[in-house]
Design a protein around this nucleic acid. Structure first.
Length: 449
RNA sequence: GUGAUUGUAGCUCAGUUGGUUAGAGCACUGGUUUGUGGUGCCGGGGGUCGUGGGUUCGAGUCCCAUCAGUCACCCCA
């Protein structure tokens, strides 16, 4: 057998225990908060039919979907002619793909199970998703999303709740200086309409989204290259100069859709203000656009200002996501947490609790068959008392056993040899102080619990 | 899909204007009273220098190609 180099595919990662303890800490915090707000868990499969996914994320998104080759002799069934290219061949030999996000599979789930679901449906979902783009910092080909959505109501109270939920999670994780940016697609529509650039809505919005990255001049340059007329920029400037929501009303008074967007925005912001947030700031940001083109109303994005990593969460309202699966007139709104990026932020700011590496508290050293057998009931007693304990599995040198305990961060090593077996008094070594003391199991359990 | 950059031990790296048997730290392992770790001391294993060509008396070092990683763009969490 030839040796295979132990490497991973591009953009894929192992997670060691040290990392997993911390990731789980984030997962648990988010999960508890979701449940506290009344969201129920669901899961969807890793693979969807490829038609379920294609066309939902734009052309760029389609390119980034991981496709799964059919099983069996797929090539024998394929038809070739001189026009066959990778794209047309793909259609013949691929019918499944890995999920690209959690929202589209969720829409499929809701449409498919509409008769069993009680609306409004509040669900959360924490699963990994795959994207075939080039990895870079804070960007992987496999990563987790943690989504919470409410579907089956257009009430803006949901938006209010989701803003609170964001604030709650980031407060619990103790991430400081978090901005929850909010905007409304209808306001953007109105702006683009007033600019006379309705045909270039996507282009305008994508360019606008880059404002803080490339600057206003470049944004205008990009818009112009896409076909936006120069005289539209006075309107753009007017919108960009709005510092608060009030400034928008005069700008939007001519636009019906803009008025609607403004009304929605004000409702959400006023209500959040009334309730108050614990640590995050809710900030109106006209430049906030978000690429995913299924958003229709409110859009949200979360930034941790102390770390340059991009957004650590995002979401918005989608009025018609399920209609592509045959379920019409169902409005939904949801948010997503980018756990990989939250991890990076917390790591960089040193926000993980000290004692997060939960591990064995007590280890019995192994002195041989009889001694080990003597330890088993003691082990059981400790575990029953909720004290994590293990027995070193084989009789090896003390040095090796102690090194194992030390490297694993075990707090107490218990030595049971002939003497201890006879007296039932255990030698307990505190690995922190190095001190050793003698006691029976009952006292040990009392001491440690 | 486009561009930049890097590739030496399991990991982090050193390696001078090309010159003998390619080094260090960490990790692993053996010893230092065979019932005691984390700190000390002594020893040991481990590298086709990413891969394939080329220049040269001689290449880890120079040239070309290729592969892989990283970063940035597009897009996005």
């Amino acid at each position: 057998m030839s040796n295979t180099k132990p490497t991973l595919p591009k953009g894929m990662r192992d997670f060691g225990s040290e990392v997993m303890f911390r990731r789980n800490f984030i997962f648990e915090t988010i999960k508890k908060t979701f449940e506290c707000y009344g969201y129920a868990p669901i899961e969807t499969p890793t693979m969807e039919n490829i038609q379920t996914l294609t066309g939902k994320y734009g052309d760029e998104g389609d390119r980034l979907i991981f496709k799964v080759l059919n099983s069996g002799d797929y090539l024998s069934k394929a038809q070739f002619d001189e026009n066959t290219d990778s794209k047309s061949l793909t259609k013949q030999i691929v019918e499944k793909a890995l999920r690209y996000d959690l929202t589209v599979p969720f829409a499929r789930f809701v449409s498919q199970n509409r008769n069993d679901i009680i609306f409004p449906f509040k669900r959360y979902q924490m699963q990994n998703v795959w994207r075939a783009d080039r990895p870079q910092k804070g960007r992987y080909r496999e990563f987790y999303q943690c989504d919470a959505d409410v579907i089956g109501t257009d009430s803006l109270l949901c938006e209010v709740e989701l803003v609170q939920l964001y604030d709650d999670v980031f407060t619990k994780l103790q991430i400081p200086n978090v901005d929850i940016c909010i905007n409304n697609r209808n306001i953007l529509s109105a702006m683009v309409e007033l600019m006379g650039a309705t045909d270039f809505f996507d282009e305008v919005v994508i360019a606008l989204d880059k404002l803080d990255k490339i600057g206003l001049a470049k944004v205008k340059e990009e818009m112009e290259s896409k076909g936006v007329k120069k005289d539209a920029f006075s309107i753009l400037d007017a919108f960009l100069n709005t510092k608060n929501v009030g400034d928008l009303s005069s700008l939007l008074e001519k636009s019906l859709i803009g008025g609607k967007g403004l009304e929605e925005l004000q409702f959400v912001m006023n209500n959040v203000k009334k309730i108050g947030l614990q640590s995050a700031n809710l900030i109106f940001d006209v430049t906030l656009a978000r690429g995913l083109n299924y958003y229709t109303g409110c859009i949200l994005e979360v930034k941790a200002n102390d770390v340059a990593i991009g957004s650590i969460g995002g979401g918005g309202r989608y009025d018609d996501l399920t209609s592509i699966f045959g379920l019409k007139d169902v409005s939904g709104v949801g948010i997503s947490f980018g756990i990989d990026r939250i991890y990076i932020v917390m790591k960089e700011l040193g926000l993980f609790p000290d004692n997060i590496d939960v591990c064995t508290k007590v280890m019995f050293a192994n002195f041989g068959e009889q001694e080990a057998a003597f330890c088993l009931p003691l082990l059981k007693q400790l575990r029953a008392a909720g004290i994590s304990a293990e027995l070193f599995p084989s009789k090896t040198k003390m040095k090796k056993q102690m090194t194992y305990a030390n490297n694993k961060g075990v707090q107490f090593v218990i030595m049971v040899g002939k003497d201890e077996m006879e007296s039932a008094i255990l030698s307990v070594k505190n690995m922190d102080s190095g001190e050793q003391s003698n006691m029976n199991v009952t006292d040990l359990i009392k001491e440690l619990s």
